[in-house]
């Protein structure tokens, strides 16, 4: 099967790639572009480990075809820190031990950053429902939720 030529941006950089029409955006990011920060936990959109943004909208990259990225802006975990400086969410996740094994962490951080852009002052319930599509098997979510609420408060204070 012939491949498709796709032009897009990833974390602000112009990127072109060839992909099979059947390949997902997650396949392309991981296998063709070497960006392995997004993880495949299920391939069916249930676990959120592959969360990225597409034109600013939070998506499961396993449910998007690579070809659908044509002309769109992709944001991944690799673009979250600015140079040496971690995003406040990344810092707080380390400080609060809001990760144990760390496999769900990139997806949860991408999803949470999208939440705080939309709603800088979420309630605990709003955070829990927003992250209901991001499975974590290690933490019981307690430290994740606390890290998100505290970061949101810090960011509101700083702005």
């Amino acid at each position: 099967m012939s491949k498709m030529h796709i032009t897009t941006t990833v974390n602000g950089d112009d990127v072109e790639f060839l992909c099979d029409p059947r390949e997902t955006l997650l396949d392309v990011l991981r296998d063709r572009l070497g960006l392995t920060g997004a993880k495949e936990g299920c391939g069916t959109g249930d676990c959120g480990a592959c969360s990225v943004t597409l034109d600013g909208r939070l998506v499961c990259s396993c449910l998007v075809l690579g070809a659908e990225a044509e002309g769109k802006r992709i944001g991944t975990i690799e673009g979250m820190a600015k140079g040496e400086d971690l995003h406040p969410l990344q810092k707080k996740f380390i400080e609060h031990a809001a990760l144990q094994c760390g496999i769900c962490t990139p997806g949860i951080l991408v999803a949470t950053e999208a939440l705080l852009k939309k709603n800088p002052d979420p309630s605990e319930t709003e955070v829990r429902y927003w992250l209901a599509g991001n499975l974590c098997r290690c933490t019981g979510y307690d430290k994740i939720i606390r890290a998100v609420l505290e970061t949101a408060a810090d960011m509101r204070e700083a702005s």
């Binding site: 392995t36 920060g37 993880k39 991944t76 690799e78 820190a81 971690l86 990344q90 996740f93 760390g102």
Partner: peptide
């Protein structure tokens, strides 16, 4: 911690 929050940590796949 840094590796795990930046996507740099290398897992099985």
């Amino acid at each position: 911690g840094f590796d795990k929050v930046t996507g740099r940590a290398k897992f099985g796949a």
